[in-house]
Design a protein around this nucleic acid. Structure first.
Lengths: 296, 296
DNA sequence: CTATTTGATCCAAAATTGGTATCGGACCAT
DNA sequence: ATGGTCCGATACCAATTTTGGATCAAATAG
């Protein structure tokens, strides 16, 4: 197969249509240039140039190859440039796992900030529950996880990007919707819709802890994993629920969202997590963006 | 700049993730392979591979470069293949000049036949009058001309692809439209629309000859160059005209086309012309197609 | 702790590359 | 015609680069 140097030789000759001038442009002498072109022609088994004694012309095959050759050279340059940009953390792609709940409030801002500051970076977003994210992080299938505690210490680094309170969700016409805040005790007296203990373990456990600390035992009428499902059920009047603040972003009609009156609750946390041996140059860059966003 | 051999080395290592196996695949030993990769990395000033002592991994930059490298290699192969196909006359492009009149009857068939038999060939069609075609042929700006006589002998080759008679064009409601054929004498008695002596010299001269041989001197009411313009004027009732048979393809409404009764006329000829030193491998192929078409 | 595996390094031999000198054909002016 | 000039091809030589075998160093597995 031919070499890029030969391609460069050919393009020079094809553009100058003169071996001597082309050689000068390539900082070499004419004889080796002639040889390189001959070798290229032999490799392709195609005559690229018609040498008349006073002029050099492109054959049709040469014309076609010239077009392709220019493309190849452009591509090699851009490939080199891209690799360098990736190494500098200015381009490339990152696989990001995120929980369904984080897609309402944190992920959009993060994606927006990245697109603005790193326009050439491709963010590959994959929704999955926290447990799966930890597994995928370990396998190197995602670079970044946006997930809920607990986070094992084994080779992972992380920082908190969000801590949000749970707020009450009641049907719009419900008697509790009248007040600006809702007492946890009042809420617990209603039929209560809560999180599935496995698929949405973090919220499930959070609520269990919340109620048990307040010595309350609400009547659970439904277990669900997704926030929008819960809001839909609330809207239908089946019961009330506690959802993270981010639910406000959903603009769910027919559901009133009210903060709790006596708010001693532990916040629902979201963490930015990555393997400390992940060498993707984008990681520190995106981590910095994520941290800025969390701070603001 | 780097060389394609280095790209091939890198792709092999990136795919095997093992220098020894990659070297075997490349029919070389491991040490020069290691060195080539190092050189490539130094040229790009980017680390492409993460060498752990028991395993080789791609860095993100390497991942990006691998994608591009595969593309580059594909492109080089296809460029070589394409050049070979062009040299064989199976691909490439041809510049073809043609007269406006030929676009009604011969050019469409030729293009259709080429597209079918030479699907990878690009036909670049340029409408121009015969004189311009001869000029462009001389300058090498078109490979093929489809034009009217006379053709100078200087370095050109040609053969006839079409000989068509002139037929009468009269307004649909005209008294002459009733008969299946029209006598030249009757036609000459009407206001006669004919061809511009310069832009459409061939048809102009043809008609001058036709009428003078019949000892007729029609009254010319208009000079025009384009057949469709002439038909439009005929349709408007300004006069009658003689147009090549190909005009029937135009399906011009409001105009009746009738053959001449006493048809001793010299046919209007169209020639396929090329420079005998044109080395485009497609020329003989397309000439053969054109000849077949003319014979049929 | 040893055997094995893996990539890096060293070195001599071989191949490739680039340069100088020269050739051969064609065009040009005299 | 004829000598001069231009241009690409060829021959040959020197320098560099590449190659591959031997070896090394590090790390893992048993």
């Amino acid at each position: 197969m031919f070499e890029l140097s030969q391609v460069r030789c050919f393009v020079a000759v094809a553009e100058e249509l003169h071996f001597g001038r082309a050689a000068a442009r390539l900082n070499m002498t004419q004889p080796p240039l002639s040889r390189q072109i001959q070798i290229l022609e032999r490799i392709l088994s195609v005559k690229l140039l018609q040498r008349g004694n006073r002029l050099v012309r492109l054959t049709p095959a040469g014309q076609s190859f010239l077009t392709e050759a220019r493309l190849i050279l452009k591509l090699t340059e851009s490939a080199a440039l891209l690799a360098r940009r990736v190494a500098e953390g200015k381009a490339g792609s990152v696989n990001i796992g995120f929980t369904a709940a984080s897609s309402y409030s944190y992920v959009p801002e993060l994606v927006a900030a990245c697109r603005q500051q790193l326009p050439d970076v491709e963010l590959i977003l994959k929704e999955m529950v926290s447990g799966d994210q930890l597994k995928r992080l370990g396998a190197g299938e995602i670079d970044i996880g946006l997930l809920r505690p607990p986070i094992p210490r084994t080779g992972l680094q992380f920082f908190r990007v969000k801590a949000e309170r749970m707020i009450a969700a009641v049907p719009a016409g419900h008697k509790l919707a009248g007040a600006t805040t809702i007492d946890l005790r009042d809420l617990a007296a209603e039929p209560f819709i809560t999180y599935a203990p496995y698929e949405a373990r973090y919220f499930h456990d959070l609520l269990v802890e919340l109620f048990s600390r307040a010595a309350l035992a609400p009547v659970y009428v439904q277990h669900l994993a997704q926030i929008h499902s819960i809001l839909a059920i609330v809207q239908a009047g089946v019961g009330v629920a506690l959802v993270p603040e981010a639910a406000e972003k959903l603009q769910f009609r027919g559901v009133a969202l009210r903060p709790l009156a006596d708010d001693q609750q532990r916040a629902a946390e979201l963490y930015f997590v990555w393997r400390d041996d992940n060498d993707n140059p984008l990681l520190p860059v995106i981590a910095a963006i994520a941290r800025d966003l969390a701070g603001a």
